[in-house]
Structures are given as C-alpha cells and as structure tokens.
Simulated assay, not measured.
Amino acid sequence: MSIFLGILFAYFFKLPKTFISKKVSTIPLQIGIVILGATISLPYALDVSSEYLPWISLFVVASFFAGLLIGKILGIHRRIAFLLSAGAAICGGTAMAAIAPIIKAKPQELLIAMTIIFLLNALAIILFPLAGNYLGMSNFEFGAWSALAIHDTSSVIGSALIFSNESAQVAATLKLGRTIWLIPLILIANWIFNREVTAAKFPRFIIFFILAIIINTLFNFNYEVQNFLQTISQAFLIVGLFCIGTQFNSSELSSLSGKPLILALMLWVAVIPSAYYLVKYF
C-alpha cells in the first residue's frame, strides 16, 4: 500500500525531480534495514535453529540460485530475477527492500516484485492453515513448514498464529535462520552488481547493518526493546517504499511482462512440497 500511495501521490501532484521523496531516494529503506539488524542476534538464532539450520540454509541457497536460473531461462531482466529470488528465498519484501538500492533496481522493478510476493503471501495466510489441518500436521510441523515455505516474516507469523500459538513461536524462531541470510545476500548483491564499476563505493549501510547485529549480540536486547526496534524499522521501510513509489514512471511499466509471476510461482510450487516432506519425515 505504501508503494501504491507513493505512485498515486506522484501521479496526481506531478512531482518535480527535486521533490524531497525523490531526493532522499532509498535512504529511509537503508535506515530501516540497519535498525532491523539490531533485532537479530546471531548466537540466539544459531542456537534455536540448530536442528533446522542446515536445511534452512539449503533451502535458501537452492531457492535463490534456482530463481536466478529460471529467470535466465525465461529471459527476465536480471534485476527483477534477483529481487524475486531474494524475496522468495529469504524474507520477502524486507530482502527485496534491502538489495534494491544495491542493485540499482528501478521503482517499477521493485513494484512488480513486491506486488507478486504480496499476493503469494496473502494466499499463504489463507491456504496454509487449511492445508495444515487437512494434512493433520502437528503444531511444531506446521510452524516449521510455514517458516520454510512462506516469504515474508509477517505472513509466516500470521499463518502460524491461525494454526496455534505454539506454531507461531516455532515459526518465528526458525524464520530467524532465513533472515540471517540477509547478510551474505547484501554482500553478494554488491559484489555482483558493483564489481564492474571501479568508482562504486561499498554501501555504507551494509557496515552499519552488520554493526547493528553485533550490538544486539553483545547487549542481548530484551523483547520490549526488540519489539520497539522492529516497529521503528517497519516505519522507515514504509516511508522508504512510499519514496520508491513517488519515483514511478508509468511509461516504463510496459516493458514488464507476466514472466516474473511465472518465476515466483515455479519457485513456490517447488518449495512448498519440499518443505512439507522435510518437516514431516526428517
């Protein structure tokens, strides 16, 4: 909604290039990602996710590179394929918002990737609990399944909470294992998209993101502090996405096709049964 509001705002008010939302560009997104880092504690995530961490890592890596491969086969522009692959493999909109400024994604590209992931997340919240009940999954199994197969953290928790409180706790804990992959994702994205530009500077917000994780690891923030930081992070992300929306150029939207949706659906169709088989039989 934030992106669409930005688009409508720019459309009706015919914003000049010097308008503040265009000048600040992706800075609010970067601030939001840095604050998000302060809610991640590496030792805690590794401890609680130890049983599933190897499988989570395998899912993340396999999904990400499968997305890039499918995108190449379908002839999708590599920025869109990179956004969708990152969103599907790690943590949906958060991952895409984190790498968008690094890969210099156009507002239209981020918009279509966000829209696709949003639609799949909306379906997941409705269909996953129904499927879990039909398949007779336990609370732990459903929480693990949601954490592995659904994209955005909010949708993971939403789906699991409909099933049971225990499922939500399991899902939130295991989802951290995927969120941690934001760190190598950001580094890989910078290396792939900026290595050819000798004058490109290493994105400073990546350093602050890692420092924020270290600070949380050292001080072990309690639940209240982390909840406050998550709220602040979401606020900056929402503002940042609004700014992205105001940079939208409708003339370039015609270059996009239905192929990105096919890519996201193909990844999801492969991940859902694979994740179910893993949590049910391993």
Rank of each mutant, 00 (worst) to 15 (best):
L127M: 12
F128C: 06
F128L: 10
F128T: 08
F128N: 06
F128P: 10
P129C: 07
P129D: 05
L130R: 15
L130F: 15
G132C: 07
G132I: 11
G132M: 10
G132D: 04
N133W: 02
N133L: 13
N133E: 15
N133I: 11
Y134L: 14
G136S: 02
G136Q: 04
M137L: 12
M137R: 01
M137E: 12
S138Q: 08
S138D: 15
N139W: 00
N139A: 12
N139Y: 03
N139I: 01
F140Y: 01
F140T: 06
F140S: 05
F140G: 01
F140W: 03
F140H: 00
F140I: 04
F140V: 02
F140K: 00
E141M: 02
E141N: 05
E141K: 00
F142N: 11
F142L: 06
G143C: 03
A144V: 13
A144F: 07
W145S: 07
S146Q: 11
S146G: 08
S146I: 12
A147M: 12
L148M: 14
L148E: 13
A149V: 11
A149R: 00
H151S: 11
H151L: 08
H151V: 09
H151A: 07
H151E: 01
D152L: 13
D152N: 15
D152S: 15
D152I: 12
T153E: 00
T153Y: 00
T153I: 05
T153P: 05
S154A: 13
S155C: 05
S155V: 05
V156D: 02
I157A: 07
G158P: 10
S159M: 07
A160G: 02
A160V: 04
A160Q: 03
L161Y: 04
I162T: 09
I162R: 11
